[in-house]
Amino acid sequence: MNPFAIPLCTDIEMKHHQTEAGPPASLVSEGSETIVSLDQFVLAASAGDGFLDKLNTGDILATLFFFTLLMLLLKKFAWGPLMGIMDQRAELIASEIEEAEKSRSESAKLLEEQRALLKEARTEAQAIVENAKQQGDAQRAEIMETARAEAARLKENAAAEIANEKDKAIQAVREEFVSMSILAAEKVLGKEVSEEDNRALIEETIQKAGEGR
């Protein structure tokens, strides 16, 4: 208490002098009460309780009481719940941000995955097309080759047949000719020419005649 009393005293004493000079009435009434007490305190410091008697000790206690009460009430009814809800909100925001960050990275990952898949599918499709084209080309070449070979074979066959037929025809004609020649010679010679004896001879002749042509 004492440390406060000294500056307070000088302060109030100054006021005291001012009041004598005649300041507003309210100051006098306000101050005079205190001044008396402080004067008393200064003059009769040993008396002690004079100062405390005049000091509004009740007000001091009441102020402390009311302030503490208000603080407790605020804590119970306003500050506590409000802090709770503000913390809750901060938590919510933090978790939301985290969630958003997570889903963002997840979607980025998914996008990357999808992109890779798409790329893969595209290359695959290209490969399939390429493959099909190649296969088609190969098949076409094969078919053409087969066709060409078939045609050649057919031609060859035909040629062989033709040659065969020709040979056959020639043979037939030759035989016919031999028979007719023998018949003619028989008629001309008037005797039977032994077919067995002369056939070789005639055939030789015809052979020669054929070569001669």
């Binding site: 000091l55 007000d59 605020l74």
Partner: peptide
């Protein structure tokens, strides 16, 4: 103890107003 009932009254009013607002 020395009380200034006006102070007590006004302290109470202040506390009441603050508390009601809050």
């Amino acid at each position: 103890l020395t009380f200034n009932p006006s102070n007590i009254l006004m302290l109470a009013v202040t506390c009441l107003v603050v508390f009601l607002i809050a």
